[in-house]
């Protein structure tokens, strides 16, 4: 078997009572998520009283404080959704490619979505969020196939090293292509550039409603393929021997992952590393069973992205740091940690 994305389940006690351990972690995670969501609504460059928060939550928007909170509600919602989508997408990609380093950012998939949207804006006068979603999903899909094919060339198939290199090289080529698209069009340069940094600051309820169906569909596909992903982890031959249609499972699951990260990128811009970090941490908590891992990753991703957004607002008061930058600064060291932990032969 080649590099598995499966570190051993820690803790013998937890292994004896997996269900109890998992339920406990589920409660903890839900609590953390609630706390972070509350913080995201209350914390920002403007200090707000709790009474104003409650008033704003019930729909009132009187005065600056309540108006500020009212703006933070869609933002929090988008951060939760985007985090969940990216983390599930990353977990599925790690399962499909059996590769611990898979992440929509590292594999260049986000960049593909960006190029597609930039070309859409420049050449086809794309303006509506629905248009963005379709184009971004198409771009993400094309890029992920491209990177996967390059990464699996040659001896040894799609090793983590080759996939990561293929992703980085493709990202670089796509970034140049984005400059080539944008440079002659001074009028759209500003818009595209600010969109290229992933952030949830400009969230609106309209934008969220438009991607929601895509996210729901992607999530459903991903969750339904959880059992298949468990079998894929055993290796293609064994999975096929156990009656799994390997190619079908892999394609379906990858499709779900691409829809999730493409749709998210369409509203938030490219956000990296959430899909890398969260599944790894969740695997330590609940083990390698994808039926548990995927829902946990969704919750963990929502918590991480929202926390990163809050952090970006606190650190740079009165301005803010876009969440895409915060996640890269948290995720980069984590990526290095994973690389250092792996045995060289598995890379």
């Amino acid at each position: 078997m080649t590099a598995t994305a499966a570190p051993p389940v820690p803790g013998a006690a937890r292994r004896r009572h997996p269900a109890r351990g998992r339920s406990l972690w589920l409660l903890v995670l839900l609590g953390v998520l609630g706390a972070i969501a509350a913080a995201s609504v209350t914390v920002g460059s403007r200090e707000v009283e709790w009474s104003d928060v409650l008033a704003a939550l019930t729909g009132s928007a009187e005065g600056f404080d309540q108006a500020a909170v009212a703006k933070r509600i869609p933002r929090t919602l988008l951060a939760l959704l985007a985090g969940a989508a990216l983390a599930v997408s990353g977990a599925v990609m790690q399962g499909v490619t059996r590769n611990p380093l898979a992440d929509p950012g590292i594999l260049g998939v986000n960049m593909g979505a960006s190029l597609a949207v930039a070309s859409g804006i420049a050449y086809f006068g794309l303006a509506s969020a629905t248009g963005f979603v379709w184009v971004a999903i198409a771009g993400a899909g094309a890029t992920s196939v491209f990177v996967y094919v390059i990464g699996s060339l040659g001896r040894g198939g799609a090793s983590p090293l080759k996939l990561a290199l293929a992703g980085a090289a493709t990202s670089a080529a796509l970034a140049s292509s984005i400059s080539a698209v944008v440079l002659p069009r001074g009028d759209i340069a500003e818009g595209v550039r600010s969109w290229q940094i992933g952030g949830v600051g400009g969230a609106t309820f309209d934008g969220i409603t438009q991607v929601l169906p895509f996210l729901a569909a992607g999530l459903a596909v991903a969750l339904l393929s959880a059992r298949g992903l468990n079998l894929l982890a055993l290796g293609d031959d064994l999975a096929a021997g156990l009656g799994e249609r390997v190619a079908v499972t892999r394609t379906t699951a990858a499709f779900g992952a691409v829809v999730l990260c493409g749709a998210t990128t369409a509203v938030t811009g490219p956000i990296g590393f959430v899909g890398l970090v969260v599944p790894h941490v969740c695997r330590l908590l609940v083990g390698v069973d994808h039926r548990w891992l995927l829902p946990f990753s969704a919750l963990g991703g929502a918590a991480l992205l929202t926390a990163a957004d809050v952090m970006g607002r606190i650190v740079a008061r009165p301005g803010e740091i876009d969440v895409g930058i915060v996640t890269a600064l948290i995720g980069g060291p984590f990526f290095i940690y994973i690389v250092r932990r792996q045995k060289v032969r598995d890379l």
Binding site: I106, L161, L165, I197, I321, I325, L329, G331, I336, R340
Partner: peptide, 29 residues
């Protein structure tokens, strides 16, 4: 880590590059 292997060097380079790129875009913004 007990000597440098090319594989690890490349992957860690990619991780560092991703972080630095986000620093660049933050400054540009």
């Amino acid at each position: 880590k007990r000597g440098v292997t090319g594989t690890r060097l490349i992957l860690i380079g990619i991780g560092i590059a991703a972080m630095l790129d986000s620093v660049t875009s933050y400054i540009l913004d």
